[in-house]
């Protein structure tokens, strides 16, 4: 009887384990190929050898002065941004509770994204073009900037976009504890995994978005948003952090 009980326990335990595995298997995984971040597929300009990565990364001779993303293949961004809650560019942002965020510019990890999504910077201006030709800032395609009316154009005015480069303080804005477990998120098992910066306490673009986690059929979808770390059906992405 004792043995049977143990067997039963083991069976149940394996079911539970399977469930847990199933949970993580349903992570919101996507691709870059064919997604809007696959700039190779969207261009008809000069040959880029079908390269996808080159618009952001290069294996050699990258812009090492910029630390926002690895092996950076673009110039350091120079746009003046107006932060969430700020009254003008070059002034510190404010939270909804009117607390000074202490920063007047996005941090580098978000600047990497904004080096295209500010609607000003050229998408096609990269440091190291495909093939040979190190260290020449080159225009490789006919894409210049993100369309003025495109959803992806956040502009340099960040006052109307979710705060970035802002410290995640549990309790504020009903934010959950950082050790809260996230299930089915791309690249994150807890909220802490979403946070960036040296103190791993900053909310950045990458907190919600994974630029490599796209949907190839985005154009045909109306119920999903690209490059999210979790589907926002049922507002699950928002409610991952905000305990509203």
């Amino acid at each position: 009887m004792v043995g049977e009980g143990e067997n039963m326990f083991k069976k149940k335990l394996s079911v539970v384990a399977a469930l847990l595995v199933l949970g993580s298997a349903s992570a919101y995984a996507g691709v870059i190929t064919g997604s809007p971040h696959d700039l190779s597929a969207t261009t008809t300009g000069v040959a880029v050898n079908g390269e996808l990565c080159v618009f952001c990364h290069t294996p050699h001779a990258g812009n090492s002065a910029f630390t926002g993303a690895p092996l950076w293949n673009k110039a350091s961004p120079t746009t003046d941004f107006t932060m969430y809650g700020a009254t003008s560019a070059a002034t510190n942002g404010q939270t909804i509770a009117q607390a000074d965020t202490g920063v007047s510019d996005p941090s580098n990890s978000s600047l990497a994204c904004l080096s295209c999504h500010d609607g000003v910077s050229s998408i096609d201006s990269i440091v190291n073009a495909p093939g040979s030709g190190l260290n020449s800032v080159t225009t490789v395609t006919s894409i210049t900037t993100i369309g003025v009316n495109a959803n992806a154009n956040l502009t340099a005015d960040l006052t109307n976009t979710h705060p970035i480069s802002v410290t995640y303080i549990p309790g504020n804005a009903s934010l959950k504890p950082t050790n809260t477990v996230l299930t089915g998120w791309q690249g994150a098992g807890t909220i802490l995994d979403l946070l960036r910066g040296s103190g791993q306490d900053q909310v950045e673009c990458g907190s919600c978005h994974d630029p490599h986690n796209g949907l190839a059929d985005q154009a045909t979808r109306s119920t999903e948003v690209n490059f999210l770390r979790h589907t926002n059906a049922g507002s699950a992405l928002c409610l991952g952090c905000h305990d509203k």
Binding site: L154, H162, L239
Partner: peptide
Amino acid sequence: ETEECVFCHIPHVTRPAGSPL
């Protein structure tokens, strides 16, 4: 529609008047 927050909030390109987002 399944999203809850969207009836009042949107993360990007929000309305000029009203807060947050």
